[in-house]
């Protein structure tokens, strides 16, 4: 699949756009399963676009996959924190979940340091950091050329701002690993033994932090601090590209339908 898509890029074909368009048409025809398959083909090819995951979230919701839809909206917001449509749909969807469990948050220090960058994209924060970093060295050079009052303090402040921006960029590049309960009830166990009584239950749409992943299992914790192991096939992982179990022939993105000109 990846090879085919990569080849398509080399040859200049517009297969990604065609697949996207085809998926949109399937969605509009209420053929949600087909739409999901095609959106997931793009996601599996490491196409990272906020609109792609937003549309995938809508298709999942249409197919009754509430948990997966929540995960896809979260992914869209990771890619574009300013995407109001994804935020609105996520909030609407969470209201329909059983208990609208609070979203796990990063650590207190991380929140205190990077709160200002919450609604900025990774690129914006990175550009800010690089600009600040460059300005910091320019100020140091100016000071070396001719000592000016307060130039050292200014350089220090700019350097701190640059460090904060670059730290925020790093934080955005390594977001909190989230997973969403994808079944009506997902038991969370003390250990990796499904035969033992569950420690507590997650309900579809509940978001949890993924602390560790092992084959078949994930150690998760809720915003309230409850921790335990869940079977990973019962969860939708926010930052995990879907694996499409289709044959290569089926994986090939479809040609655009209709008489559209591109």
């Amino acid at each position: 699949m990846n090879l085919l898509l990569a080849l398509a890029v080399v040859l200049g074909a517009d297969m990604y756009d065609a697949t996207f368009e085809s998926a949109n048409q399937a969605y509009r025809s209420s053929n949600y399963a087909s739409a999901i398959t095609q959106y997931e083909q793009l996601a599996a090819a490491h196409v990272e676009d906020s609109v792609l995951f937003y549309n995938l979230g809508n298709a999942c919701y249409g197919a009754g996959l509430t948990g997966k839809a929540v995960a896809m909206y979260e992914r869209a917001l990771q890619l574009d924190p300013k995407m109001d449509a994804a935020r609105q749909n996520l909030e609407t969807l969470l209201k329909t979940t059983k208990r609208n469990l609070a979203r796990p948050l990063p650590g207190d220090i991380e929140q205190a340091l990077f709160f200002w960058a919450e609604n900025l994209s990774f690129r914006m924060v990175l550009y800010l950091g690089i600009a600040g970093w460059t300005l910091f060295w320019v100020l140091l050079a100016l000071r070396a050329l001719r000592p000016v009052r307060y130039l050292r303090v200014a350089a220090l402040l700019v350097g701190l701002a640059a460090a904060l921006s670059l730290g925020a960029a790093w934080s955005k590049a390594h977001p909190l690993a989230l997973a969403v309960a994808a079944q009506t009830e997902v038991p969370v166990f003390f250990g990796k033994n499904p035969d033992e009584p569950p420690r507590f239950l997650l309900y579809e749409g509940d978001r949890v932090r993924v602390e560790r992943v092992e084959p078949g299992w994930a150690l998760v914790s809720t915003a309230g601090g409850d921790r335990g192991w869940v079977q990973d096939d019962r969860m939708a992982f926010v930052d995990r590209s879907p694996s499409v179990n289709t044959t290569p022939a089926e994986q090939k993105p479809k040609e655009p339908q209709g008489t559209g000109e591109s």
Binding site: D17, F20, E21, N24, Q25, Y27, R28, S29, S30, D49, S50, V51, L52, Y54, N55, N58, A59, Y61, G62, L79, D80, M83, A85, Q88, N89, T92, L93, G258, T259, G260, E261, S262
Partner: peptide
């Protein structure tokens, strides 16, 4: 996407309750 026109449709897009519709153009 890309400003092209699709076929005339006899049906209309159905929005899920309370959800905003899908977007045509990728970011």
């Amino acid at each position: 996407a890309g400003g092209s026109r699709a076929d005339e449709r006899s049906s209309v897009e159905v929005l899920n309750q309370g959800l905003l519709p899908i977007l045509d153009k990728p970011a």
